[in-house]
Simulated scan of single mutants.
Amino acid sequence: MERNNLAFYDQQASQWWNETATIFPLSKLNPLRFQYFDRFIPNWRGLKVLDVGCGGGYTCEFLAQRGARVTGIDPSAACIEVATDHAEEMGLTINYHVGVGEILPFACDLFDVVVCVDVLEHVQSVAATVTEIGRVIQPGGLFCFDTINRTWQSRWLMIWLLEDVLRQIPRGIHNWHQFVPPKELHQLLTQAEFSQVTLQGFDLFGRTPLAQITHLIHYLRTGEFQIQFDNHTGVMYIGTARMS
């Protein structure tokens, strides 16, 4: 079975904003992850923000509704088409592009903030993507991200349980070998001249297998995630870095 099969996003594009679609639960993560990012940026109004790996536009629209001047980029032309159409329907001005994180078609020092959520575990080169993000952020600008750690816990939860057993995530969407350990990402950020790196656990499912199953049962019953930020980075983690 192919792993890191990103064709899923093309296949889901037409249903991206359908509340019954497989992809739609991702839209519910933005209010949660921005509880963390808002600690560093309490007011997004007027900021020039790039969303790398924007898909059909969940995070772009979330930020545009908060007054940011948003640009989104994604390798899926189908997702970008849907994102563009939906933004127009919502009366939102968002600048969308087809492209990849490793080669961003933007000038240096252009953005106040770059957001890259649920994406670094899918790119072909994390190092190249982080370097490009650093290039397009102006000095003093902020990089906001979350991703998945490469541990036995993430393999058990994200792939075996959520993909293979419960089928809450499409099978093949993740490649465990492309998950990104926090130490590795911290090193890449430093090499790309970022500083003031923060990292915390983005704990959607609890720390232990029993807690994770309990959280999943709650989600399956209610459709709501239970979130806490802590020092447990064994599965998902979230962070920021400041461009020097």
Rank of each mutant, 00 (worst) to 15 (best):
N175F: 01
Q187C: 05
L199Y: 08
L210T: 11
Q196I: 00
D164Y: 05
Q187T: 13
L162S: 01
H186W: 08
N175R: 11
G201Y: 04
R221A: 14
L216R: 02
E193G: 00
I173F: 09
F194P: 03
G172V: 09
T222Y: 13
A211N: 10
I173D: 01
S195Y: 01
L199T: 15
Q228R: 15
L166P: 08
Q191V: 10
L188I: 04
L166E: 07
Q200Y: 02
I169L: 14
F194Y: 14
I173E: 02
L189T: 02
P182D: 08
H186L: 02
T222E: 08
F225D: 07
H177V: 01
F205I: 06
N175P: 00
Q200K: 13
V180N: 07
I227F: 06
G223R: 09
Y219C: 04
D230Q: 06
G201R: 05
D203G: 09
T214K: 13
H215I: 00
A211E: 15
L185R: 02
Q228L: 06
L166A: 12
Q178D: 10
Q200F: 00
P209A: 08
T222Q: 03
L166W: 12
F194E: 06
I169R: 03
L220R: 14
A211L: 12
Q187P: 00
F194S: 05
Q196C: 06
I213H: 05
T222A: 05
Q228P: 01
Q226S: 11
L161W: 10
Q226V: 10
T208I: 11
R221G: 01
G206V: 12
F229M: 09
V180Q: 11
I213K: 07
P182H: 06
E224I: 05
T198Q: 14
F202M: 08
D230N: 15
I227N: 00
R167P: 00
Y219T: 06
W160F: 11
E163T: 05
Q187V: 08
T214G: 03
R171A: 13
Q187H: 09
P170Q: 10
Q191T: 13
S195K: 12
L204F: 15
H232Q: 08
P170F: 02
E163D: 05
P181G: 02
V197Y: 02
D164L: 10
I227P: 01
L204Q: 05
T233A: 09
A211Q: 15
I169A: 10
D230H: 05
F194D: 08
N231D: 15
T222H: 11
F225Y: 15
P182Q: 04
L166F: 13
F194M: 10
T233W: 01
Q196N: 14
F202E: 08
P181F: 03
F225Q: 07
E224G: 02
Q212V: 03
L188K: 15
V197P: 03
I227Y: 02
P209Y: 09
D230Y: 02
L189Q: 06
L162I: 05
I213F: 14
L199Q: 12
G172R: 05
P181I: 02
I169W: 14
H177N: 14
V197H: 02
D164W: 07
P181H: 04
T208N: 07
S195M: 10
L189M: 15
N231G: 12
H177Y: 09
L185N: 06
T208K: 08
Q178P: 00
R167M: 07
T198D: 13
L189Y: 01
E224C: 11
D164K: 14
